[in-house]
């Protein structure tokens, strides 16, 4: 456990020192600021737009961090041959994979918290400057705590995407890993369509294949409750727990597969 922790801290330190990370955080902050300006121009809808944009920006910037750092976690070590000295230390290969994963999830957690805090600050400021009559037109309060489940699920989804990126990078090139991860990210949002594929096609084989794919591919749409939250629909604790549980199981399976592949690899 101590070894996994030390590797995780090293990953966190490295990504913090990578200028890319600062840029991404800066971009998120700028985007939220821009969304505030848009809000100024659209009477009545401003809070909704800012919540929408803020949550979407958190997700997209998190996604870029998860994929672009995720694919490099292992492959960069192999490519630059730093893995040679690292693996000669008293660590087991599965500890390396788990430590790397934990480190990037920690990095993402810090990022998501910073972005969420920025969003709440912007919304809190709006609430503070607006008149009471104007606030009465808002569906939900500006700094609405109901956004927290949505933010948490964005984070859970990013943790799953990180596991995908890490899994692919244990056996394919960084570029291919990025393509596969982004591909699955998109597919994951439309996965539910595969479930009822038999109502579209006649072939039983195709329907079974679609059903198998539905279970094998990650379902990412359930993690996306931004629209519901912004429009004031409730997201229950049970739903969040179920979705998180699904994510955790999927992550566990991916990490297990990554460890299986990585432990058998020759570093020529």
């Amino acid at each position: 456990m101590a070894i996994i922790g030390r590797i995780a801290v090293h990953v966190f330190k490295e990504s913090v020192r990578d200028k890319v990370l600062y840029n991404l955080v800066l971009f998120a902050v700028l985007l939220i600021a821009a969304s505030y300006l848009i809000g100024q121009l659209t009477a009545g809808q401003d809070v909704k737009i800012i919540k929408d944009l803020g949550l979407a920006a958190t997700q997209i910037f998190g996604l870029f961090i998860a994929v672009f750092i995720g694919i490099g976690l292992v492959s960069k070590e192999v490519e630059r041959r730093s893995i040679y000295s690292l693996l000669s230390k008293p660590i087991r290969r599965h500890e390396l994979i788990l430590g790397k994963y934990a480190g990037l999830v920690l990095t993402l957690a810090v990022n998501v918290v910073v972005m969420a805090a920025t969003l709440y600050l912007v919304l809190g400021y709006m609430s503070w400057v607006e008149s009471e009559e104007f606030k009465a037109t808002w569906l939900r309060p500006a700094a609405d705590p109901a956004m927290l489940p949505a933010i948490f699920l964005v984070f859970a989804q990013l943790a799953l995407v990180t596991a995908l990126a890490l899994f692919f990078s244990t056996f394919s090139s960084p570029i291919l890993s990025a393509v596969l991860t982004f591909g699955l990210y998109v597919v994951g949002h439309f996965n539910a369509d595969l479930r009822n594929f038999e109502s579209v096609v006649d072939s039983t084989a195709a329907a079974y294949l679609a059903r198998a794919l539905y279970y094998a591919l990650p379902s990412l749409a359930p993690f996306d409750v931004k629209a519901a939250v912004v429009h004031g629909e409730p997201v229950t604790f049970g739903y969040v727990a179920m979705t998180t549980g699904y994510g955790a199981a999927y992550v566990a399976a991916l990490l297990l597969a990554a460890v299986f592949i990585f432990s058998r690899r020759d570093f020529k």
């Binding site: 070894i3 030390r6 590797i7 090293h10 330190k13 490295e14 020192r17 990578d18 630059r80 041959r81 730093s82 040679y84 000295s85 000669s88 230390k89 008293p90 660590i91």
Partner: peptide
């Protein structure tokens, strides 16, 4: 173990690298 033509982490200093490895 000293690998052939070793390479480590660009963003760490030599001291930080040794502290990291020492920690392992």
């Amino acid at each position: 173990y000293l690998p052939e033509l070793p390479y480590f982490y660009d963003n760490l200093s030599a001291e930080e690298l040794l502290i990291y490895f020492g920690g392992l």
